[in-house]
């Protein structure tokens, strides 16, 4: 243990207090949402710990009718579980496709030589800087057209949203390319001499060593897809096809904010992200490539 100056202790404590305060700041809205979801009635304000907790919003979120105190029944207003399922489907499929396309793309940019490589990389970066919102009208009419030939990719289909989400690929290509470039080329050369084709060297040497960045990209792409609102809100229309992010908007009518139901649905939408993160976390480890080459 290194010898530390005495005033370091105070600095450590100051840092801790600052971080705890910062954490409270971040956690407060989240705790508020959880609190609202357990509060009876639809009120945004109130104590953090509800005075008369009730599960009514959670019943409704899971699609079960709720019997009020006066005996009347409240029917679930929206198919929340279906929306959640839609979100997961779209996010999962688009993320898997993004991962497939961006790893192979990144491999090409990191390892192969071809014309206009640098300009393509720069172009991808610059195009990525324009938010998808700017292209909403174009995206809408594009899928409108596609839909007349391929119905399952047309407007108001989950397929269209999935395909639209693949547009966020460039960032991931850059990320993975950067990681590939840290892996010593001689490993793949050794594989080639061992008799591996380029594909085998990629599949059996480069990819296994890249799992940390693949896990990161998977999580990032998944979160982006789950939370995406503008594109989905333009492409999806019918109640049964909405994703949870778009569906949640339905609770906030101008005259009638269904705060409680909204909160329950919002907490629910955080669930898949948390699960994916926990699953992927074990792949995010350092030191995978150590020992391979003399540094």
């Amino acid at each position: 243990m290194m010898v530390q100056p005495r005033n370091l202790k105070y600095r450590v404590w100051t840092a801790r207090i600052f971080m705890i305060l910062f954490l409270c700041l971040i956690m407060f809205p989240f705790l508020m949402i959880i609190s609202v979801s357990f509060r009876s009635g639809n009120f945004a304000t109130g104590d953090l710990i509800p005075s008369n907790p009730s599960l009514e919003h959670w019943y409704l979120a899971f699609g079960i009718p709720w019997e009020n105190a006066d005996g009347s029944m409240t029917q679930p207003p929206f198919p929340v579980l279906l929306w959640l399922w839609n979100s997961i489907k779209v996010a999962f499929i688009s993320t898997v496709l993004i991962l497939l396309l961006s790893t192979t793309g990144a491999y090409a940019f990191a390892r192969l030589r071809f014309r206009f490589k640098e300009s393509m990389l720069t172009a991808m970066m610059i195009l990525q800087m324009f938010p998808a919102v700017l292209a909403l009208v174009a995206i809408y009419s594009l899928f409108d057209q596609i839909g007349s030939y391929v119905p399952w990719l047309g407007l108001d289909s989950l397929g269209s949203v999935t395909v639209a989400y693949l547009g966020g690929l460039a960032l991931h290509i850059w990320l993975i390319k950067g990681y590939f470039e840290t892996i010593d080329l001689s490993l793949e050369e050794a594989a080639a001499i061992d008799g591996a084709t380029s594909w085998q060297a990629f599949r059996y040497v480069l990819l296994p060593l890249s799992t940390p960045i693949l896990a990161v990209v998977f999580i990032l792409a998944f979160i982006t897809s789950i939370a995406e609102y503008p594109v989905a809100s333009v492409l999806l229309q019918s109640m049964d096809n909405l994703t949870l992010a778009v569906g949640s908007r339905q609770y906030l009518n101008p005259q009638n904010y269904l705060w409680g139901d909204f909160a329950a649905a919002a907490v629910l939408s955080g669930l898949p992200i948390s699960i994916i993160f926990l699953l992927c976390q074990r792949w995010i480890v350092g030191g995978l490539t150590s020992g391979g080459v003399k540094g």
């Binding site: 001689s186 050369e189 050794a190």
Partner: peptide, 15 residues
């Protein structure tokens, strides 16, 4: 080519 090569950096597969 069926040749064997030993690299200066060893180039072992670390995984």
């Amino acid at each position: 080519r069926r040749v064997g090569m030993v690299f200066q950096s060893y180039a072992l597969y670390p995984h």
